[in-house]
Amino acid sequence: MSNETTFEPRIVAFLCNWCTYAGADLAGTGRKQYQANVRIIKLPCTGGIDPLFLIKAFERGADGILVSGCHPGDCHYNSGNYHARRRWNVFKPLLEFCGINPDRIQFSWISAAEGGKWVETINSVIDAVRVLGPFEGYQKINAIGPEGPGEGFAPSSDTTGCECK
């Protein structure tokens, strides 16, 4: 387990091309500094994000995920962000059921004009995940192999489930 003091969370951000990606660009244009723990994956629309992408990111070692798109009513594709929100509402309880703390995934609306909000949001996600600690569910499952799922993946009412016990 990582030492709490040196733990640097790994965040994967799935951003829509039109709003939040452009907002993150604007933060750069304005030379607004933020923590470097994020890797951005650009997609046309948050509505096009398959929940499996998020699971995959966790599997590959992400400690937290940010999904961010256009504000309601502002979607470049009219309704994509609403679909993303609905999908999230269904996906969240599933995560909880799987024992993944849903706080590890944040959902936000950031427009192309909100460079400052991008900085605030990503910093707060990084800080929040830093408090949660590293996500080790997949390390466990990979270590156990085919015999059975790790403790973290048993249905659990405890939403903190697998977290670094």
């Binding site: 604007l26 750069g28 470097a36």
Partner: peptide, 13 residues
């Protein structure tokens, strides 16, 4: 690969 707006301009180290 966006290493200016999303990297060099936002991280000083």
């Amino acid at each position: 690969s966006n290493i200016r707006e999303q990297c060099s301009w936002v991280h000083q180290d």
